[in-house]
């Protein structure tokens, strides 16, 4: 199987010296979590990858460049179409409705996913939906599969979801995708609690306040 490198933002985005120093420059940052994910792709067999941040060319090239299949969707748009504004405002909906939402969003069999790119999308769902999503993802992920999530700083009550593009050498270009939406705050403890059923949660400290978390099933 072809396990090549892929993904680029175009020559203008890179300094000739590689990705060193690529931080906060037009949303470009070095991501240690992405480096780990790339290693996971390199060393493992071809796998099914789920991207909940919508499809873009860079992530497509990054994932399929390793011979993987990519299922992509913008879960925030699906969520907004599925739940009424009142349900979203109240932050709750019937359990059956949440279940139906998950069935629609995640058409996979148990253990089918080798990796999941959640980015910052958990913060744009109401807590019950986010918790149900994480529980379902755990069931759908294969043992040893990885999940990459980002969390905005706690003090932000609303922000625009990030359009994240994976590039070479563990670089991520994260740019806000307006409009801004209400965002659920998550501190480190809440993140640990959310992923308590997983075998490992790794936090990566970054210079900006965006928290990177890599979770192993």
């Amino acid at each position: 199987m072809n396990k090549g490198r892929a993904g680029a933002f175009g020559p203008a985005a890179y300094s000739p010296g590689g990705s060193a120093g690529l931080h906060d420059q037009d949303g470009l940052r070095r991501s240690h979590a992405l480096v780990s994910l790339a290693k996971h792709f390199e060393t493992g067999p071809a796998m099914q990858v789920l991207d909940l941040g919508g499809l873009n060319q860079q992530n497509l090239d990054f994932v399929t460049g390793y011979g993987n299949r990519l299922y992509a969707q913008e879960i925030v748009l699906g969520y907004e179409a599925f739940f009424t504004p009142e349900e979203r405002l109240r932050g709750e909906a019937a359990a059956e409705k949440i279940e139906a939402f998950l069935r629609e969003c995640l058409p996979f069999s148990n253990g089918a996913l080798g990796a999941v790119l959640v980015w910052d999308r958990l913060q744009f769902l109401f807590p019950a939906a986010a918790a149900a999503l994480v529980t379902r993802l755990k069931r759908l992920m294969a043992p040893g599969a990885l999940l990459l999530a980002l969390f905005h700083p706690e003090h932000l009550s609303s922000t625009a979801p990030l359009a994240c593009r994976a590039g070479p050498d563990g670089a991520i270009k994260a740019t806000p995708k307006p409009p801004a939406r209400p965002a659920e705050p998550f501190n480190a403890r809440a993140i640990e609690k959310l992923f308590s059923g997983f075998s490992g949660v790794k936090f990566y400290m970054t210079r900006d306040s965006l928290q990177e978390v890599l979770i192993r099933r």
Binding site: Q48, L55, N56, Q57, L60, T64, L70, Y71, Q73, E74
Partner: peptide
């Protein structure tokens, strides 16, 4: 080839 601001839901191979 996917352009920005296109809506896509599905599997790509």
């Amino acid at each position: 080839v996917i352009e920005d601001e296109a809506y896509f839901k599905g599997n790509v191979e």
